[in-house]
Amino acid sequence: MIVRNLHKWIKTDRKGKRYSGYGEILSKLLKRAVKENIPAVLLMDKIREGAAKRIPPQRLITAVKNELTRLKTAKAIVYRQNIKPENEDQYANRLKHISILLLGGIKDKTITGLFNLMAETKRTADDILAACDVLVEFNSINLLAQDDLYGVGKALLFSRLKASTFSGISSIYLNARAKRIKTEDILTIIKNTLTNGGGIIQLDQEISNRGRHR
């Protein structure tokens, strides 16, 4: 069905026609996803996204292959951690979410390590993913080692903060960097403050007296 949709899209859609010579390769990738029990619609979304950005065919194929690799890793994490939702849409969303984390530079072992803390921290799978989202934001500000990312994620999960408020921590990290506080120091401040039961107020207090020059 999804393969048929792909061919139809390539034939009829103005953006799809650009990839008319590559239908077979793309359909093979979709079939492989179906065989792996990965919702092929996720790859189809990637193809449409690439077409909208007018990405050249060869680059699109590489991007779809990479996405398939990430989705396979995401599926392995979901099954290994026993966090597969019953609903198929939710399952697809979860795979897509983890794939975005992997794309954002969070490695399999870091995500798995944080999921391993689920029982101990009494957090849900969505909470773990919210903590991982913050790590992606940290990585978008500057690349960090996986151990550092894991340390921040762990501190978030053990903190008193609700998962819905995790995202503010990435802005604090950015602000601290703009104040020229050293990366290592910021990470230690975040970890120690959260571990001590503090939140955004206490982080703000810690950072406000350190920034030099500004």
Binding site: E137, S140, I141, G168, I172, L174, A178, D204
Partner: peptide, 10 residues
């Protein structure tokens, strides 16, 4: 007032 938005913006 400080607003630490959910994205890298303060």
């Amino acid at each position: 007032l400080s607003w630490y938005t959910g994205i890298p913006l303060t």
